[in-house]
Amino acid sequence: MESVSYQRFPKIKIREMKDDYLKFELRETDASMANALRRVMIAEVPTIAIDLVEIEVNSSVLNDEFIAHRLGLIPLTSERAMGMRFSRDCDACDGDGQCEYCSVEFHLRAKCITDQTLDVTSKDLYSSDHAVTPVDFSDPSDDNDPFEHTETQRGIIIVKLRRGQELRLRAIARKGIGKDHAKWSPAATVTFMYEPEIHINEDLMETLTLEEKLSWIESSPTKVFDIDKVTQQVVVVDPEAYTYDDEVIKKAEAMGKRGLIDIRAKEDSFIFTVESTGAIKASQLVLNAIEILKQKLDAVRLSDDTVEADDQFGELGVHMRGG
């Protein structure tokens, strides 16, 4: 059966890009595509996180599970993650997840010998692989960080030790995805919004006095509209600040000017905001997500031929078939 092709070619326009922040437009596609991308970014882009902790000495106030949980949540730089193996299907180590292909070993040794409290932070974690280290937030290139204090920004605090307390452990970090545990999720915030299309009925607007215009502008909780100082006309300054709260529409109705404004969401264009935990760069996160999405779609396409799919995608194929 030959079907009509609905194939479209989505376009991406990057608005703003930092290491851990990305804002881009996704156009000429629909919500299912945008949402799939979002979901993959949250749940299926692999990263590396501490998964197994062997505690040698722990005389701190926090118990072993507590510390293990905290270690797990520390983001590790995971550029390697896409190329790594899941420890469960690693051939090199029979699945115990301790080999170099599927795991990274960390060591932590801290003992407080002074009267001052010792903060054990992510910087005290020593990695066996220089590519996989705890994320360093005190980025030297980012000097204008208002929260940066040289003393406090030592990393993520794991535990505080007082005199005589000691913490010694070995941790194994593995590759994983956010679906299994949130610690593997590379995304801090992934969200999108429909791009609003705002049409001001200029004729009706001209019937308003300046005070009325101002009060109408004020009614929006976000700064979407403003008044042009010269022409005293209402202009849209930032359509994306609009939160679909309908306040201006309600206000217009309350003023008896129904149809003063028409706001519609563009069904086919989305504005994405992606913030990364630091594990991978936000831009890489999007690329990886697209890669994984492509793999998943390939798996769907090949699903008739299960054996072939298994060869090509490993467990991903099984996963796609609902296995």
């Binding site: 299912s32 949402n35 909780p221 939160t243 679909y244």
Partner: peptide
Amino acid sequence: HGFSYNGKDFIYSGITGCP
């Protein structure tokens, strides 16, 4: 701070991506 005065937010479904 850019929220609605009544505490209600505009929410998208996580499953479909539609508002």
